[in-house]
Amino acid sequence: MTYVSPGKGYERDSRYIATRITADGREGFPVRPGRYRLVVSRACPWASRAVVVRRLLGLEQALPMAVAGPVHDEDSWTFDLDPGGRDPVLGIERLKEAYLAREPGYDRGITVSAIVDVPTGAVVTNDFPQITIDMSLEWAPHHRPGAPELYPAELRPDIDAVNEVVYRDVNNGVYRAGFAGSQETYEEAYERLFARLDWLSDRLARSRYLVGDTITEADVRLFTTLVRFDAVYHGHFKCNRNKLAEMPVLWGYARDLFQTPGFGDTVDFDHIKRHYHLVHSDINPTGIVPAGPEPEPWLAPHDRAGLGGRPFGDGTPPGPLPRAERVPAGHNPLPGAGPP
């Protein structure tokens, strides 16, 4: 598949279906436990945000999840992990079918995460930044007891400010480097990426978390990029000034989050590597998937607790993963992440 335009920089298509699911249903889609299906891929960093937030808040029963396979073609994400290659609830083989049910002739990106209205089989929204905010605010009555506040009112301006620069320079910055079509656009993205990672290192050298003394939405958004850095972005996207493991503060911060229930136990390193190295055939035409890096270093002590902070504030960690949502054995080094 072609992602690089020779001589040009990379521009993400942000024309999302922005309909919101709200507590009052003001846009036609009220919050209703069991009515919707969250479609994700564990390979995708944008979808992985929703997976982490859903788990931290305990929305597993209220908002059931479908997991697409890690490799898609130019047409769509597929449900090849499910028996018969169909999602057992929606009954579809390709996520594109749910997009066309919403908009016949839909011609934009078939992206995850997407929330599908089960009764109609149509996508409600794929506006991934808003999806996780609404999980925190609109779905609050259905949070588990002890769920953390990931988007507290008093910290929202700071969270939003951090999220804006992290998205521009880091979350999307790795793509701007990896899909650059010229030396100039690549180097510009590369410099902005590592300047922002240095800025984040300085900030996190003094604070355990990005905003305040608990985990927030800002930490979730940074984590899903950092956890892919050495496995994909360092080599595949040429973001190779340093590995994450060579940036002590960020490496410790990322390990701290990885070892926090709700973060690392949702990560599938096999899906991550297969997606990037098989789907981006213009960058990796041989289709060879790297064997490394080994995941066990993610379990090494991080020594971040000395900075203070309480991961869940006055709340509690989520409980064990439901068996049906455990990452396959061998795809994650955490005890209990995969089936026994």
Results as ranks from 00 to 15, higher is better:
Ser48Phe: 13
Ser48Thr: 14
Arg49Ser: 05
Arg49Ile: 08
Ala50Cys: 06
Ala50Asn: 07
Ala50His: 00
Val51Gly: 00
Val52Ser: 06
Val52His: 03
Val52Met: 13
Val52Thr: 13
Val52Glu: 08
Val52Gly: 02
Val53His: 01
Arg54Gln: 07
Arg54Trp: 09
Arg54Ser: 08
Arg54Gly: 04
Arg54Ile: 08
Arg55Glu: 10
Arg55Thr: 06
Arg55Ala: 09
Leu56Met: 04
Leu56Ser: 08
Leu56Phe: 08
Leu57Thr: 07
Leu57Phe: 09
Gly58Ser: 04
Gly58Asn: 06
Gly58Cys: 04
Leu59Gln: 01
Leu59Asp: 03
Leu59Gly: 04
Glu60Ala: 13
Glu60Met: 07
Glu60Ile: 04
Glu60Trp: 08
Gln61Leu: 09
Gln61His: 13
Ala62Met: 10
Ala62Tyr: 12
Ala62Cys: 03
Ala62Gln: 07
Ala62Arg: 03
Leu63Asn: 04
Leu63Gln: 02
Pro64Cys: 12
Pro64Gly: 09
Pro64Leu: 14
Met65Arg: 10
Met65Ile: 15
Met65Leu: 15
Met65Ser: 00
Ala66Phe: 05
Ala66Trp: 06
Ala66Arg: 10
Val67Trp: 05
Val67Met: 04
Ala68Asp: 00
Gly69Leu: 11
Gly69Pro: 03
Gly69Ile: 08
Pro70Asn: 12
Pro70Tyr: 10
Val71Phe: 12
Val71Asp: 01
Val71Asn: 05
Val71Lys: 09
Asp73Glu: 10
Asp73Arg: 10
Asp73Asn: 14
Asp73Thr: 07
Glu74Lys: 13
Glu74Met: 12
Glu74Ser: 14
Asp75Gly: 13
Asp75Pro: 00
Asp75Trp: 13
Ser76Ala: 12
Ser76Thr: 11
Ser76Gly: 02
Ser76Pro: 01
Ser76Asp: 05
Ser76Cys: 06
Trp77Asn: 03
Trp77Phe: 11
Trp77Ala: 02
Trp77Val: 06
Trp77Gly: 01
Thr78Glu: 14
Thr78Leu: 10
Phe79Lys: 07
Asp80Gly: 15
Asp80Ile: 03
